[in-house]
Design a protein around this nucleic acid. Structure first.
Lengths: 123, 123
DNA sequence: CATTGTCGATTACGGGTGTAAACAACAAAT
DNA sequence: ATTTGTTGTTTACACCCGTAATCGACAATG
C-alpha cells in the first residue's frame, strides 16, 4: 500500500521520531513544543493521522503508546523534492539551482559543497 | 499586499497565462484540458480563486474576461523552492542535490548543466 | 473506595482544495 | 420576441489541515 503524503504539521511531528525512536506522545510533544507551541492534544491528533496514513506505527506499552516511524526521512524528502521539481522545473534540477543562484539563495559553502559532490559522481 | 500561496491546481491554470496573455477562460480551459481533463466550470472556479488571491487580474472584454497573471512565474518557483528547501534541508541546497544524486534522479546533462552554471558564478 | 489525573479515541470547527452544478444576465439565433 | 447558448457568479460538497476540546476508560493518590 502506497504511503499517503503527509502534511507539514505531520512532518514536524514525525521528525523527532527520525532522530530517536520509539517515543511516547508526551515525549514527542516535548520535542516539538519549542518550535511549534502545540498542545499535547494537537500532537496526539497529528500522531493518529500519521498512523492512519501508514507513516507511523505504535505499540502499546501499558496504557500508553510507543510510536516509531514507518517511512524513511530520506524517502520522504526525495519524494517531496521530486514532486516540486517535476511540477515547477519539468523534472530538471539545473533550473532550480539556476533560479536560486540568481536570487542569491546559495551560500559560498553551499556552492562549494554541490560542486564537490558532483565531481565525485564522475567515474 | 503579500500575495497568498496558490495551490497546485491553481498553478496549472495560471501556467498558460505565463506563456501567453491575456487569455479568456475558454482558451485557458483548452490549454489545460489535455493534461488535466477539467471542465470549463472547474477552470473558471480556479481562475476566480486566483483573482481573489491577487495572483491573476482580469479585464472585461464585452461579456467575457481577459485574464493575465499578476505574479511572476520565477517568483513563484523560487518561493516554493525555498519553502521546501528550508523545511526539508535546513535551507541548504547541497543536501537536496546529494539526495537526488544518490537516487539517480540527476541525468548526465542535468549534472553538466549545474556544474556549468556554478562555474560561471565564480568571479 | 472515591477522587483526580492521564491515555488514547471521538468529535469539532473554520478554512483551503478539488471538482463541479445551478443560476442569473445577456447575446445570438430563429 | 422567444428559445438557446454562453458568461461570469454563487453555491455545493466531500475531504484535508490546523488546532484543539471533550469523552470514556483506566491508573494513581489519598
Amino acid at each position: 500500500m502506497a504511503v499517503e503524503r503527509i502534511s507539514e504539521s505531520e512532518y514536524a511531528v514525525i521528525t523527532p521520531l527520525w532522530e530517536e525512536s520509539p517515543l511516547t506522545a508526551v515525549e514527542i510533544a516535548d520535542r516539538v513544543a519549542d518550535a511549534q507551541g502545540w498542545t499535547l492534544q494537537t500532537v496526539k491528533t497529528l500522531l493518529s493521522r500519521l498512523v492512519n496514513k501508514g507513516a507511523v506505527a505504535f505499540e502499546a506499552q501499558g496504557r500508553r503508546y510507543l510510536y516509531r516511524p514507518l517511512i524513511e526521512r530520506d524517502d520522504h524528502a526525495v519524494a517531496e523534492s521530486r514532486r516540486l521539481i517535476d511540477r515547477l522545473f519539468a523534472g530538471k534540477v539545473s533550473p532550480l539551482v539556476a533560479h536560486l543562484a540568481e536570487r542569491d539563495v546559495l551560500s559560498k559553502e553551499d556552492i562549494a559543497a554541490i560542486e564537490a559532490l558532483l565531481k565525485d559522481l564522475r567515474p
